[in-house]
């Protein structure tokens, strides 16, 4: 009796784990988005915070953003084999703004618009051939885009 009950519980646990698994594979990197510092973000995303600043990463962002709610950002890279492009706003409550996984059919260029709470360094991290490269720029914010 005891054995069957244990087996049933184990079986149920296994089924739950199986159901959770496919979701985990495609998962949104929750840990990286919850991380509180740019180093933690990189650890969570790439398992390393060892980045090299590189001229091959181009980050386009305004010098001054009048409205922190809408800050246009674009990142491109001339590196080969770019797998991921991530945008980190150092001073935001959750520094990771966006992380783009690039397949073989995508060029290493993305642009979007992000929110910035206050004046901050913006770091673009590019993962190419397993290595991390970055570029950063300070964006001055006149009106914050968080809370309010």
């Amino acid at each position: 009796m005891k054995l069957t009950r244990r087996m049933f519980i184990q079986g149920a646990a296994a089924v739950t784990a199986l159901m959770a698994a496919p979701r985990a594979l495609l998962a949104w990197p929750e840990k990286a988005f919850k991380a509180g510092s740019s180093d933690e973000v990189m650890q969570a995303l790439f398992g390393s915070a060892d980045v090299t600043e590189s001229g091959s990463v181009v980050l386009n962002a305004p010098d001054i953003a009048e409205n922190g709610r809408v800050v246009p950002i674009s990142v491109s890279s001339s590196l080969d084999g770019v797998e991921n492009i991530s945008v980190i706003v150092v001073e935001n409550p959750s520094p990771l703004a966006a992380s783009f996984d690039l397949g073989p059919g995508a060029s290493a260029a993305v642009s979007t618009r992000i929110k910035m709470g206050k004046t901050s360094n913006v770091i673009a991290v590019v993962k190419a051939d397993g290595k991390l490269y970055s570029a950063q720029k300070e964006v001055k914010v006149t009106i914050g885009g968080c809370g309010g």
Binding site: F33, T112, I114, K115
Partner: peptide, 23 residues
């Protein structure tokens, strides 16, 4: 065929704009 996945946090602006290039 999947070209790109963008993972976003709440720091992406309202009514998001997203541009990319496909080869």
């Amino acid at each position: 065929k999947l070209v790109m996945t963008a993972n976003w946090g709440p720091a992406v602006s309202k009514n998001p704009y997203f541009a990319f290039t496909v080869k």
